[in-house]
Nucleic acid binder design. Structure first.
Lengths: 128, 128
DNA sequence: GTAAACGGTGGAGTGCACTCCAGGGTCAAG
DNA sequence: CTTGACCCTGGAGTGCACTCCACCGTTTAC
């Protein structure tokens, strides 16, 4: 598929896709006329990129992950290790998010009294 | 406390703190000599800011949340609503992260067969 | 054959979140 | 009274992640 179709299907701008290609986040080969040609894989891959990005991973990190995937010896064991590693990163983020959530949940619960300065009562105890 | 101490205690640079103050992320009053004076609350608040930031919230969003907290009518009901709202945002992020995690966990599990192109097998089915 | 739709490149510009000066005032210790 | 640690402001610069633009070639439809 060419860049226009990928743009529509991924919801990313053409410029963004070209930028991603330049930074190694997505691959393409070129038609004889010089047009980029993307595989069908590009669509879910870009969706993954967006999700990971929204969750606070930089494009560099995501690109590194993609490169590792591509370069990994194609053995189940090696790939399992790779994914386990990423899993740990995601789990760490989830834990952070959980503690943030907890802090908020405490406040949202049945009318807890609040001091004149909400911050004091909210974050004065255990720092998040 | 002055900016140097807050910098040490929060792990943020003086410049970053001054920048945060300029954008309304943290408040201070001034000593007669013009020095910024921060309350003890600033330390846990800045820790919260950093955590939220790492999790993909922009400084503008965090500042808005802080402002809402400060401006909220000091009634338990209003604040509960405020926190419940933030809670929903955090929960949405957790859900995204969970689906990312699931995708990774599937791969990391006992040797699942992989096609020549790992991406196809990883993301070819349901886009994340 | 020409117009519209699509593609290419290079480079400038944008917004965010800082970082790094330069130039200068404040304050406690020696 | 000077030295050093600390603070101020304003402005320039940086890295990331794009976005916009001008100018040009290609392909498709009429």
């Amino acid at each position: 598929m060419r860049i226009g179709e990928l743009s529509e299907r991924s919801g990313l701008s053409r410029d963004a896709i070209r930028f991603y290609e330049k930074t190694g986040l997505v691959e393409s080969h070129r038609s004889p006329n010089g047009y980029r040609e993307f595989g069908a894989d590009a669509v879910p891959w870009l969706a993954y990129v967006r999700t990971a990005q929204r969750l606070g991973f930089s494009l560099a990190e995501i690109a590194a992950h993609g490169a590792e995937l591509r370069e990994a010896p194609d053995s189940a064991a090696a790939l399992s290790a790779l994914f386990a590693e990423k899993l740990a990163v995601v789990d760490a983020k989830m834990a952070e998010l959980a503690s943030l959530r907890e802090e908020l949940a405490e406040r949202a619960g049945a009318g807890c009294p609040l001091s004149p300065d909400p911050l004091r009562s909210t974050f004065g105890g255990r720092p998040i």
